[in-house]
Design a binder for these strands. Sequence first.
DNA 1: TCTAAATAGTGCAATATCGTATTAATTGGA
DNA 2: TCCAATTAATACGATATTGCACTATTTAGA
Lengths: 155, 155
Amino acid sequence: MALFQLFNEIGIIEQLSRTIMEARLPKGLIAPHFGVLNHLIRVADGRTLVELARAFQVPKTSMTHTVAGLSKHGLVMVRPNPNDGRSKCVWITDEGRALRDRVITDLTPEFQELLDGFDVERLFAILPVLTDLRVFLDEHRNAEAPRDREFRTQA
Amino acid sequence: MALFQLFNEIGIIEQLSRTIMEARLPKGLIAPHFGVLNHLIRVADGRTLVELARAFQVPKTSMTHTVAGLSKHGLVMVRPNPNDGRSKCVWITDEGRALRDRVITDLTPEFQELLDGFDVERLFAILPVLTDLRVFLDEHRNAEAPRDREFRTQA
DNA sequence: TCTAAATAGTGCAATATCGTATTAATTGGA
DNA sequence: TCCAATTAATACGATATTGCACTATTTAGA
């Protein structure tokens, strides 16, 4: 079944690229930490924990843990949500911004190597297909969600 | 940076497809367990732990743990390697084969939904690009491997 | 207004991942 | 042949992930 192979390749690429990225992170931080920092900058700062959990499709408890790690390193600030006494908002700090920028900078040589050594046309041609596939899988994801996992609202 | 977006989509797809797959696994088993079973059938039975760790590019200790889980469930047998007293070989059991086949069967409706609802031409057109990308990343992976992680020898 | 249901967050426990260090076996060069 | 370097596996500890249960708060319908 070719679909099997497709998802297998995607899984391997995810693992390789994650390893590359994590090699640029300071000790104690891993991909999910960077993902949250990046999300706070690219999408919107001051997100609640549930919003973040939805965005990354992880259980709330996982996001609590990830944000706690970021907070411990001074990369985000967690404050009560003035509009809802149950929830908290996560704000990125200057240190968080600086780290995120530095990681991206550190990654550019690696990216450049890929752009130089790989057929860029072919590479970028698959992006819209991947996006459509992601949307399809996300929309068709079984509603009988057996886990404590929120539905994605935004990339 | 479009490359960023590319790897981001791949990461999301990996997460979604893994969740779909794990929903078909019995309690106590997750994607890496299935991956090993599949590898033993598709590639070669009787692999050593190091060979498996290389194939999946995980640290040896992670593979020890994964195989221990499979063994506990009776899905593989771990025996001494007659050719090398240091190592052990992992053999899939009938139960392991049966489980792997059942999971694949259980997955076909989900696959069919994708084949029906998605432009299959577009989908399969990206497979060779993904394969080339995977090979590129694997070959260009930094030799200064900072971790206890083996190099891939086979998909 | 009141109260039941829904929602946000977290404590806890089970399992997973992985870096470091250790042991045992093998290999290769002197 | 012999021993130093290499290799296979794992014990151990730190951190990550996640399901379940619980509390606090908000919401919505009677």
